[in-house]
Every structure is written in structure tokens, then in C-alpha cells.
Simulated scan of single mutants.
Amino acid sequence: MQIVDGVPRVEAYAIDDLDDGTIALGLFGSYAVGAVRCEGARSWVLDGDAPEDDRLRLFRVYLQAGGEPRDQEIAAGSLRLRFSAQAGGEARTSNQLADVLQRSMLGEEAQLAEALAKDQGALTIVDGPLRLRSGSQRVVGYIKSIQSWYIGAREFALLEELAMGERTPLFRIPGGGEAGSRGRPDRYAWYMCLADLGPHVHPLGGIARLEAPGALDLDEAARLADQCALALPRLASSPVSDPRAPLNLPP
């Protein structure tokens, strides 16, 4: 099994003078994207031997709301950090620039997951909802923070009955094709219980939603769901060491 994740960071906000005498908001940001391979009791960060096969990637970008952004170079002690210019699109506020940074990271996560999924012998999991460019890969999206449930009251009641390692039947989340809602195609989805947290925690505290590409046939999607039900509970984090337990996976 291989798990893809990333982390963004806003380094600093900026104001840049434009050639027409106006100003534009800017953001210095960085993000890292990588993958961890898990086999038995072992886990390690994937890092290719050749630069073109590098699985651990670090990006520094300078985002700007308006105008023509330029590459920036910042002195940091004896080092000089280079931030590649990236247009902020329709962003006009600092928060919107931070959203652009987040989306850039998510795009790199999707690219890495697609590359790793070429290994058909390994289950590939990417943090968050699926954002694949192609819908045929054996990649599973892992959603810890659930904002939309996509199921009715009768199905929702089933979630509180799940024991550790159990999952719901699959259901389908329509996306309307590549040009549909949020630009994502249809996905299969299901809920599973990673851990029994006891009577002092809400029953949904150990529930995660998972997604598989809607282009897969139903039997293949069900096999992926069963693999996740077997593999993920043993990776559940402990509340002793992680406030986001059990859904935050230690690897």
C-alpha cells in the first residue's frame, strides 16, 4: 500500500508595486508532496534514485493577485530561496491566494497518485477527495473531514452501527463528467470505521469516507473497498499521540 499526502505553508504575505502605479497582493508559499510505502510492519518514504523519478517533491511559489508576477529570490542567511512566479487567477484577497496555493498542492498530489497507481500490485491512497485527470486508475481518496455526506437518513443510521473494519455498501457520487460539479467525474464512495473509540466519543468519530474512480467497474471498486477495510484500521492513529486520532494515518 502507498499513501500520498501533501502539506502547504504560507511563508509570508506581500504587496507588490505594479507598472501602472497600482499595487497587488502577493503570497510567498511552499508545499511538499510525497508518498509513503507500507508493507507489513515496515513503512518508508518513496524517493526515487533519479531526479525524474523523485517521489518527494518540494515547491516554492510566489502568487500574485493581478499584474504579471515575477520570480522572486529571498536571502535566508547564507542561502537564497527561489520562489517561482505563479499567476493567482481570479484571486483578489490574501485568503483567495492561500486557496490557490492549496489547489496547486492538491493537483500535484493527484499527479503523483496517478504515477504511483501504475504499480497495479499496490493499493494507492491519496489524502482527500479524488481529483484524478483520468478516472480509470486504482486510486482511493481518503476523506477525514467530512463536509457532505451524500446519503439519506436511513443510510446515515447505518454508520453508527459499523464496527472497526466494517464498511457500508458502495454508492455513487455524480460529478457530471470532467466539466461537471467542481470539475470532477463520477465517483464510487463508501464509509468505513477505522476504530472503536468507546462510549465517551461520538460513534462517527472513527468514520471516514473513501472514494474510487467511477470509471471502474463495480466489482473492481468493491475489491478496492474490501482492501481498504482490511488495511486501514491497522494504521489508525492513537489519541495518546495524535489529537486527530484515529483518522490521521501515522505513515
Rank of each mutant, 00 (worst) to 15 (best):
R131T: 02
R223L: 14
P8W: 00
F83G: 00
A24M: 07
L81S: 03
D119R: 15
S94E: 13
G141C: 09
P233H: 00
M164K: 15
D226M: 03
D54A: 14
E211V: 08
Y62N: 00
F83Q: 00
F171D: 04
E39H: 11
L232N: 13
S237I: 08
Q137N: 10
L101V: 03
R184D: 00
C38K: 11
W44I: 09
F156M: 12
D186C: 07
I207K: 05
A24G: 08
Q227W: 11
S181P: 01
A215N: 04
A163M: 05
Y142K: 03
S148W: 07
E166V: 05
Y62M: 00
G29E: 03
E114P: 11
R60V: 00
W190I: 02
C193K: 15
L112V: 09
A115P: 01
L116S: 03
D49T: 06
G177C: 06
Y13H: 15
D54V: 10
S148R: 15
P129E: 05
G67R: 02
D54Q: 14
V36H: 00
Q120G: 14
I3C: 05
R167K: 13
V126M: 13
R131A: 10
V7S: 09
L204T: 14
E211W: 04
A222H: 04
G77H: 06
L216F: 04
W190H: 08
N248S: 14
D196K: 02
A215C: 02
E178F: 08
P250Q: 08
E109I: 09
V33D: 01
L79V: 06
A225P: 04
P8Q: 04
L25M: 06
E114Q: 15
D226N: 09
L197I: 13
K144Y: 01
